[in-house]
Write a protein that binds this DNA or RNA. Structure first.
Lengths: 339, 339
DNA sequence: CTATAAAATGCAACCGATTGCATAATCCGT
DNA sequence: ACGGATTATGCAATCGGTTGCATTTTATAG
C-alpha cells in the first residue's frame, strides 16, 4: 500500500508551507491566484486526495448528511434519493441512508446512530406510526439542522418540503366527480401522517363543494399494503350500494385493489373509476392504466439536500419555520376516464 | 453548542491517563477489568461519544463501507440493503450507498467518489452495461477488499455472492415443462450479466434434457423494463405459432407482459403459462398471481456485509477467489399451474 | 527613495484518539 | 523479605489539515 500524498508533500516540493497549500486548495482569498494555480496543478499531478478525517477533526464538521426514510423500495423514494445524491456529491457531502421500515422504534434507533455518526444535518421522512419528534431533540439541542420531506410534522426551526396534498386530494376527487361519479370511496393510510390526512381533507372538501354527501362507510383507513387493496375490494363487494369511484392514496394498493375488483366481476372504469397516488411505474402495469398524481421525487430530493447544504454553508438560513411546496400533476389515464 | 466529552475529560476526572481510557474503551487486554468498569460507567455517565474522525485519522481506517447498486427501487434491493445496514450497524460500520442507475459511466463516477471517501471496503452489484472492472483497479491496487453480489463478474481476490442462477433457470423451465408446456419462450436481460446469462443457460439445459427443440425465435434479449414486457406481448401475438410457456427473468417485466397478453385475448395460464423471477411484491398484484423464484435479499445483504467486515477485522480472509451460493426457492402460483 | 498600507505567506498550536515503548505496581515462589 | 516475572498504567509522538496571529514581501503614496 503506497502512502498517500499529503499537503506536507506538496509543500515540500514547492518550497511552501503546509498552511499555504491548505489555503490554496480551499480557495482562500489570501492566497495569490498565481500560487493557487501552481499548487493545484502540483496536487493534481501527484494525485493528492484530501484526508477528510483530518479535516473533519479540525473543523468539527463531518460533511455528512443523514437520511432516514420509511422504505427504500418505492420508485418515489428511489428518485428522491437519486436527487439527494446528485446534489450531495456535487457539494462534496456524503450521505448516510437508513430505513425505518415504517417503525417508530427503528426510527428512534436510526436517529441515535445518526447522532453518534455526528451528521451535520438530517433529512427525514417519518415512519407511519411515529408519534412525535422527541427522538430528534438531541439534534435540536445541538442546533443540528433537520429538514422533513414528504411525511412531515410541524416543528419549530424545521423546514418542511411537501406537495399540497390537500389540493392534490381535492383534484383527484374532483376529477372523479367530473367523470360523473357520485359515490366516491377513499382508501387512505395512517392519518397521523400529513400526506394521508391532507389528501383526506381534500377529498372531503371536494365532495362538499360539489354538493355530494359524506358517507363514512366509504372511508377506509389502512396501511396501504397489497393486502389492504384486496380487503378494500372485498369491502366494496360487500357494500349494499357499490361506489362508482375510488380514490386510493397509493398506487400499489390501488393496483392490487383493481385486480381484485376485476376478479369479482367489476369493470374498471365502467363500474368503478379509480385514481391512485404517486405515479409509481406499477400504475402502468395494470389494465386499464391507472390515473394517478405525479409526485416530483427527484426534485424533492434535490431541493431538500440543497437547502440543507446551503444552510450548513451559511448561504441560507432555514431556521425560520417555513414550508416549501412543490408542484404535482394529475395524470389521467384509462382507469378513470369516461367512455 | 455544548462541547463534547473527550477521553481527556474522563481521564482527568478519574485521575488516569488518556491512554488508559482509550484502551479501556476499546477493551484492550492490558487493562484490568476493574479499571475498565470504572471507565465505562464514567463514560456512560458523561455521555461520551467517540470521535470517529480522530480515531479514523489515527488508525488510517474509516469504518465505512461503500455500496454501489444498479437501483434502489426494487423490493429485492431494499431487502438487501436492510440486511447490510443491520450487520453494519451492529459492527459499528457506516454505509455509503449510491446507485449507478444501470449506467457504466455513473458506476465509474460512483467508484471514484467511494475511493475519495476512502471506504474500507466495497459491496457492488454491477450495472447492466458494465463491461469490465477497470474502474475498481484503484481499489485492488490499494488492497481494498470488494465483494460482488447478485450481478457479479469473476475477478481475482474478489468474493462473489449469488444464487445458482443456472439451476434456478433450469427449475423454472422444468416446472413449465412439467405443466405440459412444449413451446417455451424466454425473455432475458443483458447477457453480459451473469444473472441473465446463467438463467438462459439453465433454460437451454432444461429444454435439452427434456428433449425439446431450441427455437431461437423464442428467445428475446431486452432490458426487462415495462415497455419490454409490452413489446414481448406484441412479439408473441405476432408469432405464427404461439408459445404455451413463458419464462421472464424479472417479475416486473413479466407482470406487464401478462397484462398486455390478456389485453390481446390470451388466457394466462391456459394459453400461456408464465414464470417470473425475484418474488417481487408485484407478482402478487397481477391476476393470476405470478409464479416466480424467490431471491433471498436480506440474507444476501447480511452475508455480504458480514463477510466484508470479518475480512476487515482480520477474522476471515476472503482473498482466495471464492463464491458463496445462497438458496433460492421456486414459488408456484396460478400463472403457471395446470388446471 | 522612504514610509505606510496592503497583500501574501509562514509559524505553531490545535482537533481527539491510538499505540510502541518505558515505567510502575503487583504477585509469586522460595 | 527479595529477585524476577507478570500485569497495569503512563509518556509522548503521531495521524493530516486548519486557522489565529505574526511576519515578510510587494505595492502605493508622498
Amino acid at each position: 500500500m503506497q502512502k498517500e500524498v499529503t499537503i506536507y508533500d506538496i509543500a515540500r516540493l514547492l518550497q511552501l508551507s503546509p498552511a499555504t497549500v491548505s489555503r490554496a486548495l480551499n480557495d482562500h482569498p489570501g492566497i495569490s491566484s498565481q500560487t493557487k494555480d501552481i499548487i493545484h496543478s502540483k496536487a493534481n499531478e501527484m494525485g493528492y486526495r484530501s484526508n477528510r478525517f483530518a479535516s473533519n477533526l479540525r473543523r468539527q464538521r463531518t460533511n455528512t448528511i443523514g437520511v432516514i426514510v420509511p422504505r427504500l423500495d418505492s420508485y418515489f423514494m428511489s428518485t428522491v434519493l437519486a436527487g439527494m445524491e446528485k446534489v450531495a456529491n456535487e457539494a462534496n457531502f456524503n450521505l448516510i441512508i437508513s430505513q425505518s421500515l415504517e417503525s417508530f422504534r427503528k426510527e428512534i434507533a436510526n436517529a441515535k446512530t445518526m447522532f453518534d455518526s455526528r451528521v451535520d444535518g438530517l433529512l427525514v421522512s417519518l415512519a407511519s406510526d411515529t408519534e412525535n419528534l422527541d427522538h430528534f431533540h438531541t439534534f435540536f439541542r445541538k442546533n443540528i439542522p433537520m429538514i422533513l420531506f414528504d411525511r412531515v410534522m410541524p416543528q419549530k426551526n424545521c423546514t418542511n418540503i411537501v406537495i399540497d396534498n390537500v389540493r392534490a386530494g381535492y383534484d383527484a376527487t374532483a376529477h372523479l366527480i367530473a367523470q360523473g361519479r357520485r359515490r366516491i370511496m377513499h382508501v387512505t393510510g395512517n392519518l397521523r401522517r400529513n400526506v394521508y390526512a391532507d389528501r383526506l381533507q381534500g377529498y372531503r372538501q371536494a365532495l362538499a363543494d360539489y354538493g355530494l354527501p359524506t358517507d363514512e362507510t366509504l372511508l377506509q383507513t389502512t396501511d396501504l399494503t397489497r393486502q389492504d387493496g384486496l380487503d378494500a375490494a372485498d369491502y366494496i363487494a360487500g357494500l349494499p350500494s357499490t361506489p362508482d369511484g375510488l380514490f386510493v392514496a397509493s398506487d400499489f394498493c390501488a393496483v392490487s385493489c383493481i385486480g381484485a375488483l376485476q376478479q369479482k366481476g367489476f369493470a374498471v372504469p365502467d363500474d368503478v373509476a379509480v385514481v391512485g397516488f404517486n405515479n409509481d411505474p406499477v400504475s402502468l402495469v395494470i389494465q386499464p392504466n391507472l390515473t394517478t398524481v405525479h409526485y416530483p421525487g427527484q426534485e424533492m430530493g434535490e431541493i431538500a439536500a440543497q437547502s440543507l447544504i446551503n444552510h450548513l454553508n451559511g448561504l441560507l438560513r432555514i431556521n425560520t419555520t417555513n414550508t416549501i411546496l412543490l408542484n404535482y400533476e394529475l395524470i389521467v389515464r384509462e382507469s378513470s376516464r369516461k367512455r
